[in-house]
Simulated assay, not measured.
Amino acid sequence: MSPVRGKAPAAASGQVRIVGGRWRNTRLQVPELPGLRPTSDRVRETLFNWLMPKLPGARVLDLFAGSGALGLEAVSRGAAFAQLVERDPQLVAALRGVVGRLGAGAQVEVIAGDALQWLGSAPPARADVVFLDPPFAAGLWEQVIERLPRHLADDAWLYVEAPVGAALQLPVEWQLRREGSTREVAYALYRRAAATLRGDMNATEPA
């Protein structure tokens, strides 16, 4: 994710790794920026276990991409395409470097820009999975979620990270499916209610 302004957790060690799929154990260099807090290996393993039935062929949107670990992990595990949105120039350069090193230019687009502005101005998309892990101190969750619908598939999945104890209010169209926490971070997976209304739920989706 993008840098967190304020308290700097101990997770920023200079590297994260892709934990599964064709790029498994690939190390991603993380620039030493104050407060940068990549999603931990353990949390990503849990998340992608939840998402595994949905990933093959999916289109992914990784907002506040930071190290790119979420979006790149999704493609490593079978997603067809990922857009990684990041505004910090140093992080953008690092993302483009790893995409080139992996030969992933046809499957991963790195977008240099502010996520909120991009959501408001970019052409409509049909993302199947969205990762939302903004700087905690900025309090951007609700603003981002308000701008998401035009970029989503009807049955999209939304992954959210927030501080433990944060009282996030998501619109009623989002149904909570899974959640967990560490000492500092709460994480949850939601699905758009439109999928239920169409009656397309099936036994292979994340419970």
Rank of each mutant, 00 (worst) to 15 (best):
A10E: 11
R77F: 08
W141F: 08
P206N: 10
A188F: 03
Q175I: 15
E86C: 06
T196D: 07
Q90Y: 06
L70Y: 07
T46H: 05
T182P: 10
E86K: 05
D154H: 13
G120C: 04
V85D: 00
L170M: 14
M201V: 15
V98R: 13
R183K: 15
R183S: 12
K7M: 06
Q83E: 12
R126P: 00
L47I: 15
G68M: 08
A167H: 12
W174L: 05
F81Q: 13
L102C: 07
W141P: 00
R150E: 01
F136R: 08
A94K: 10
W23K: 13
P171Y: 03
V43W: 06
G199S: 08
A115Y: 01
K7P: 01
A65V: 12
L63P: 00
V164N: 07
V60M: 04
N202K: 09
R24F: 03
A127P: 00
P135M: 11
L197M: 03
R77C: 07
P3M: 01
R198N: 02
A186W: 09
F136E: 03
R96W: 02
L132Y: 05
N49Q: 13
W174V: 01
R42V: 13
G68T: 13
A65T: 14
R17F: 10
H151A: 00
L70I: 12
A93I: 09
A69V: 15
T46Y: 03
G199Q: 08
R101N: 11
I18V: 15
A122W: 00
P206I: 11
D62S: 05
E73Q: 15
G139I: 11
R183N: 10
R150F: 01
L72A: 07
A94C: 08
S40W: 05
G6L: 06
R5F: 04
L119I: 04
A74Y: 04
R59W: 09
V19S: 14
D133A: 05
G78P: 09
G180Y: 08
E184P: 02
V43L: 07
V185D: 00
M52S: 14
Q117S: 12
S181H: 15
L132T: 07
L91F: 01
P3C: 03
Q175E: 10
L140G: 04
A167R: 15
F81M: 11
D62P: 09
E161K: 06
L91P: 01
D200N: 13
S121R: 14
V30R: 02
L63E: 02
P34L: 09
L70K: 09
P34A: 06
E109P: 01
G20L: 11
A156L: 04
V99R: 09
M1G: 14
F64E: 00
E32T: 15
A74E: 01
L140E: 10
G180V: 13
A69Q: 05
H151F: 02
P9L: 14
L116N: 01
S40N: 10
T196G: 05
F136Y: 15
A138F: 12
E73I: 13
A122L: 02
T182K: 11
N49D: 14
A58H: 02
A186N: 08
E184W: 13
A137G: 03
A195E: 04
A80F: 01
